[in-house]
Each structure stands twice: as structure tokens, then as C-alpha cells.
Design a protein around this nucleic acid. Structure first.
Lengths: 345, 345
DNA sequence: CTGAAAGCGCTTACAG
DNA sequence: CTGAAAGCGCTTACAG
């Protein structure tokens, strides 16, 4: 490495103190420093190609201009898109994003927050793993600025930005009911998170309020680590019932993508044999032979708002903000009115 | 924020110097410190829940245990998967990843390296933007440890990990020729990068060596900023020629996904009317009604190797390593032998 | 208008 | 076996 230029180098070159150099370069005490000296310092800095050592500055100021982003898996499109949005929003305020993946493990989440705290990040945006309520509670007690995104714990009073998962699921199921489907199943992740519970609750209430039966065997939960095998199995089971489902709600994008890939290989037709609504946009949902009706989360708004709330809280402690946005049901071919295709063919 | 515990707090509590605490907690001078004192210090650290301030440590040691990852767009699955792989590999050596997106702008790339250098990252993994050769050259001259990934500049001697893009494209096109396709087009990004050139060269050589004509109007380059409109337009043009193509190579995953979505809406059938080979895996390629034959890059190996090379270079300057891996052609329905389907139907 | 000095929280060469 | 001291590169309250 070439030796970095420090304040001292500039001070020596110009023949002033490092203090003066610091003031000038940070535009402090403007007007109280002679224009002439200030210009000399600025010229020297430019000439030497000086940039401040952010580490030294951070040690002194106790501020790093970094935020930690922790999601379940940064390679999941849902997360990587959020990452990019947050990166762009943070950049406007000269913040940098340090990201990490918890793999849905509260243990790993704990470690990550610990490591990132050692790096003195100014705050966190977290999509918490299951069973991580105690950790989140602890962060809250430590008065560390953070915003939860996508997921939150209703029993802990924290900042969060999410969608109304109950309503989103309810609307999706209601839409299928209105289009003539009656045996509606659900396939989701076997994760003890409030947003998943809410999606299930929305599903069940939609059925209930339309006087449709709720059957335990229509509700499938697959383990995150075994999505590849468990999703096909779940679908096979749903279709092999005495009373098979004629529609299904996928409550997660990973499940949905896996399911679509499998269904694509089966002799069942969508929507004739099976209508589908899934959470989240995806290339898979777009490219399935019958484009999938899906619940679109306002990622752009969510990411930006989460970043903004965090940055405000870093600047000055704010009141707790809890934001539930509306998801949008994008209706497409996978839920076309039951019987319609049949009649045409 | 709750006040962080420092070395001083522990030193005071135990009644020793901060130096001793530092030695014990870092397992330096083992055996030369009395077991009894060492234990006391460790107990106190645990009790006070001490973790080292990485910023202070970095200032002193000139080492941050962070690496900067700069790609074109971190929300592109190709990049976000690499990000995750690199994150996991780096974590094994207690490194953290700071990532950023250059948006294919050498200017933004320059800014990002600058900012990340101010944060004293120990090294970089970069997928360079077009026209960024001078910047890369400069990094090299500054003796900053870095590894290029996916893309590199043949005129600059740097570490890199990539695939043999020439061969990958050549094999893909050869495969289509062998399956009976003769009018083979190419749609790629209008980017002045060596890997894109190599893919075009592989495409052209495959045609040449099989005595097939190369027509300028069969080669389409679309602007990255206008993929959504430009890809459909390119495909329309290819199909509207007096001598339309009967096969096409998509040299980039973004182009390919966009193209598949559009082709899905057209009355042309794949592979009967149009055979397709595309670079990179994707859900879109999997879910297209005729699963797409594609060129699979060994992302796992590339990401890990890039991280390993970087970490070795951070530890101690190494000889320059230039790695070209083999991509794998995954043959599927989109390139089924020409006429085969026709005969069966 | 400018500078000397303290201090952020560590590490480490040196001395005893 | 242990500690005093210097120093990493900044910022800033204070003094003049």
C-alpha cells in the first residue's frame, strides 16, 4: 500500500497546525479563518489527493456513517432488492451499508448484531429471524437506533415498516373465492413469525367469512432448509386428498418459486385444475405459462422509509414509528374465473 | 446508547493496566502472564459483556477486517448470489463485506472505491464497470489488494476470477448448430467490456467454423438503461427480417429474462420457431414453457476463490492469479433438435 | 485569526 | 510477570 496522506502531511506542507487543516477541510469556523490560508490548505489537500481517514474520524466522533442491514438471506431477491433500495437511500446521506444474512437463525442474528456493533454501525435495519424477539428487545433496551423491516414482533414496541399481511392474504383468498374457487389450500414456511401467522389468519378469515370450510390438511408448512423437496411433497399431498384443493395461496416467494417449478412439470393445468395466488413479485410468477396473480409489496417505499426513519433516529431520537403499508393484488391469469377456460375449450 | 465498556473499565475493575487486559483478551504473551490475573481479566470482561471497539483497533493496527465488494447492481441475482457466497467465505476469516453498486458507471465506481478506501477496507472484489480500466490500473499501482470477478481488462495485469467467455459462447452456439439451427442471432448488452466481446467472438467463431454466414443484422446490442423496451424491439427486428433467425444467443441474464418475458407473449414457439441459449441460470430460464438451455457459471467456486485470493493477498502480497473457469452448458428443451417436434406433432 | 493539547479506545515496543 | 508510554489520525474545547 502506498502511504496515505494525513492531515499532518498537509499541515506540514502549508506550515500550519493540523487543527487548522481540519477546520478548513470540514468547513468549520468559516469566516473566522483567513481566506488566504484556507485556500492554501484546500489547494494542498487537492494536490496531495487527500481524503480523510474515516476510521480515525469515527473513533473521535463516535459516528461511522454506516448502517447494518441484516436479512435472512441477502441472495433472496426480496432482500437483495431491498438492499439496493436502502443502499441508494443511505448514499444520499453519505451512509454506507454493511449487510449480513442470518439464515433464519437467531443465533447468527445475535452474532451479526454483535459484530456490527463492534464496527460501531450507527444503526440497524433488520428483518428479524424467528425466535429473535429477546435479541430485538435487548437492542431496544440498549437504545440502539434500529428499524425492523418486513417482520416485527407485536409484543415489542419498536420502529417497523411492513405491510398489512393479514389484509394482503385476506384479499388474495377473497379474490379466489369470488372467482369460483372453493377448496383453497395454503403452503407457507414453517416459521414462527408474526407476519406468517398474519398471512394464515387472513387466509382463514377469508374462508370463514365466506362460509367455506377450513381444513387442517389444506394447510402446509414446509421447512426453510428443505424447500426443494418439501414443497413438491406438499403439493403432491394437496392434490392427492380425497377432496383435493382447487386453489392455493403461497405465502412466501421462495416457496412460490419452488412450487411453480414443480407444478410446471405436472400434468395439472393452472388455473383449470389449480388457481394460484402468491406473495411477492418474481420472474417465476411472470414467466409461468399462466402468469401468477400475486401480492405485490411496495418494496421501494418500504426500503426508503425504513432508511429514512433510521437516519432520523440516528440524528436524534424520535418517537417510535410503526408503519403498515398496503400490498397490492396484481390479478393475472392464474386465478381466472373458474370454469371460464373449460367452457371455451 | 448505553455507554460501551472499554479496556479501561476492565483494567480499573481488576486493578491492572489496560495493556495487560489487551494482552490477555488477545491471547498475546500467553504463558508470560500469571494464570490467576489472566482469569480475573477474562471473568471481568465476560461479566461486563466487553467486546472490543473494532474502530479503535483498526486505527492502531491499520486493519479493518472488511472487504469492499463492488458490482454493477447488487439486486441483480447474479451479483446478490455472489455477494452471499463471498459473505460466507469472508466470514470464515472474520471479515465483513461492504457492498456497493456502480450502475455500470466508471464514475460511480471511482467514488465507491474512494469512499470504501476512506473506510480503510483491507481489499476489494470488483466486477468493474465499462470504461473503468484507468481506475483499475490506478488501484493496481497503489498496490491495493483486489480481485476482479466476472469481468477483467486483458491489458492490465491484475488478479481475476472469471469464466472462459469465448469458449462458453462458442459451445452454446455450436450446440445449436449441431441441433440443426442455421440462422443464429445474438442479443447482448451494449457494453464495452472484454467479457462481452469474448462472448461475441465465441459466437462468431462458432458460425465461421461451421461455414455459416455472419450477418450484422443478426447481432443486437441493447442499452442497459432501456432493457425493458430495447429487448422486445431487438427481438421484433430479428423476427421481421427477410431472413429471420431461427435461434438466438442471449449473452446476459438481464437481457435473457427480459427476452423470455416478451417471447412468452408472442405467437412464436420455442424451439420450433426459435431456439434459445442464454448465459446464466435463472428462474425465468427454468420456468419458461420450454426450459432454456443455458450457460451455467460456477458462481460458488468463483466467489469463494475470489475471496480466498483476496484474503491471501491481504495477508501477504502474492503473485498475480488469473483464473479462467469453465462454464457448463446445461442442455434443455429450448434447443431441441430442429424439426423433431414438428415431426412428432 | 490560529495553535497547543487532550482525547477517542485500542496495540505494542520497551523497560524493569 | 507487569506497566508506563507512545501513537494510530482525527476533532474540538480552550486559550491567546
Amino acid at each position: 500500500m502506498v502511504k496515505r496522506i494525513s492531515l499532518k502531511d498537509i499541515a506540514k506542507k502549508v506550515g500550519v497546525s493540523t487543527a487548522l487543516v481540519s477546520y478548513v477541510l470540514n468547513n468549520k469556523k468559516e469566516g473566522r479563518i483567513s481566506k488566504e490560508v484556507a485556500q492554501k490548505i484546500k489547494d494542498a489537500a487537492k494536490e496531495l489527493n487527500y481524503t480523510a481517514n474515516q476510521i480515525a474520524r469515527s473513533l473521535k466522533t463516535n459516528k461511522t456513517f454506516t448502517i447494518g442491514l441484516i436479512v435472512s438471506d441477502i441472495s433472496n431477491p426480496f432482500s437483495s432488492i431491498l438492499n439496493r433500495i436502502i443502499e441508494d437511500e443511505a448514499e444520499k446521506s453519505n451512509y454506507l451499508v454493511l449487510s449480513g444474512s442470518s439464515d433464519e437463525s437467531s443465533d447468527k442474528l445475535w452474532k451479526l448484531t454483535r459484530v456490527l456493533q463492534n464496527y460501531q454501525v450507527d444503526g440497524f435495519i433488520i428483518s428479524p429471524a424467528e425466535h429473535s424477539a429477546p435479541l430485538i428487545q435487548q437492542l431496544q433496551e440498549q437504545n440502539i437506533p434500529f428499524v425492523l423491516i418486513d417482520r416485527y414482533f407485536p409484543e415489542i414496541k419498536t420502529n417497523y415498516v411492513t405491510i398489512d399481511n393479514y389484509k394482503a392474504a385476506y384479499e388474495g383468498v377473497k379474490h379466489m373465492i369470488e372467482n369460483g374457487y372453493r377448496q383453497i389450500g395454503l403452503v407457507g414456511l414453517d416459521i414462527a413469525l408474526f407476519n406468517m401467522q398474519e398471512r394464515r389468519r387472513g387466509y382463514m378469515d377469508a374462508l370463514k367469512e365466506h362460509d367455506l370450510p377450513i381444513k387442517e390438511e389444506w394447510i402446509k408448512r414446509v421447512k426453510r432448509e428443505h424447500v426443494k423437496e418439501a414443497v413438491p411433497k406438499a403439493i403432491d399431498e394437496l392434490m392427492a386428498l380425497d377432496e383435493p384443493v382447487d386453489a392455493v395461496l403461497f405465502t412466501n416467494n421462495v416457496v412460490s418459486t419452488q412450487a411453480l417449478k414443480y407444478i410446471n412439470t405436472l400434468p395439472i393445468r393452472v388455473p383449470d385444475d389449480l388457481a394460484i395466488v402468491s406473495f411477492d413479485e418474481s420472474d417465476a410468477a411472470d414467466l409461468f405459462y399462466a402468469p401468477i396473480t400475486h401480492i405485490k409489496q411496495p418494496l421501494q417505499e418500504m426500503g426508503r422509509l425504513a432508511a429514512d426513519i433510521l437516519l432520523e433516529n440516528i440524528a436524534e431520537r424520535q418517537e417510535i414509528k410503526q408503519v403498515k403499508m398496503e400490498a397490492k393484488l396484481i390479478v393475472r391469469k392464474s386465478t381466472e374465473r373458474k370454469g371460464k377456460l373449460g367452457r371455451i375449450l
